[in-house]
């Protein structure tokens, strides 16, 4: 197959970028999308050009490194699939494919298709953990967890932190990402002591990172490679509201 690519090129964070046209030739339907970009890069480099920068690592859909906007759809046309697991059989000979980086104020472009998602780490730092130090744990089976809760927590914990939810959201909201972690820990007995405080602090950090608000478009769930449900956003909101109503009176609610 042959395709026309229009790829976002931007040499540095402050440089002005633009879509640049390339031809992808001899594309095999069994190639992954990233392998198609690899081959293009090989050709560009043989001509002395600088390769298109894109984040990728495990290439099996779990590390969350990869992710680009493909024809206006986060991670491209295949549902429940990260860019690395998208194969070229999802496209037709002669297609034009527009490839852009995730767009959000909180995800500044580093180069070409690479963005900085450090904001996600900072949201986790705000409270996305159980405060237990190494060595302090009691026997694992002393905390029974109903299977339903454990399964639901796992559904939320499947988040790979790729940022597609933000990229696909018309508001640029990180609600699905934050809600997934709030719910993962909030559904388990281990997460209860910090449950409401966690929701308050993580939401506050999410706002601080200048993500937009959630208006329930539902695009995030559709873009999510792990198909994490917007039900968790409801859950996060509930925990946040309960937390706000019950937190001690402090500015911003929930600081130490």
């Amino acid at each position: 197959m042959n395709m026309k690519l229009r790829v976002w090129r931007q040499s540095s964070p402050d440089a002005k970028g633009a879509l640049k046209e390339y031809a992808a030739t001899d594309v095999s339907p069994d190639m992954s999308f990233l392998e198609m970009l690899d081959e293009l890069n090989e050709r560009l480099m043989e001509q002395g050009e600088v390769a298109i920068a894109f984040d990728h690592d495990c290439r099996e859909g779990i590390c969350g490194s990869c992710g680009v906007m493909i024809n206006g759809v986060a991670h491209g046309p295949m549902k429940g699939t990260a860019t690395c697991q998208l194969h070229m059989r999802s496209f037709k000979d002669g297609d034009t494919i527009v490839i852009e980086p995730w767009r959000a104020a909180a995800f500044p472009v580093v180069k070409d298709l690479v963005v900085n998602r450090g904001a996600f780490d900072r949201i986790i730092q705000a409270g996305g953990y159980v405060s237990v130090a190494t060595g302090a744990a009691k026997d694992a089976n002393s905390i029974p967890v109903p299977k339903e809760d454990s399964d639901a927590a796992m559904d939320a914990a499947a988040c790979i932190g790729c940022g597609a939810c933000v990229a696909a959201c018309p508001n640029g909201s990180a609600s699905l990402f934050t809600a997934a972690k709030v719910s993962h820990l909030g559904l388990l007995p281990q997460g209860q002591p910090e449950r409401y405080r966690r929701a308050l602090k993580m939401v506050a950090q999410m706002d601080l990172e200048s993500f937009g608000g959630c208006t329930l478009f539902g695009e995030c769930m559709e873009a999510c490679p792990k198909e994490i449900s917007i039900d968790f956003i409801s859950r996060m909101n509930r925990d946040f509201l309960v937390g706000a109503a019950t937190a001690p009176m402090e500015r911003g609610g929930g600081e130490d």
Partner: peptide, 15 residues
């Protein structure tokens, strides 16, 4: 403010 630079192409899916 959350998305100062918009996409050149965007295709809503389920909204």
């Amino acid at each position: 403010a959350a998305r100062p630079v918009d996409y050149q192409k965007r295709q809503p899916q389920v909204s």
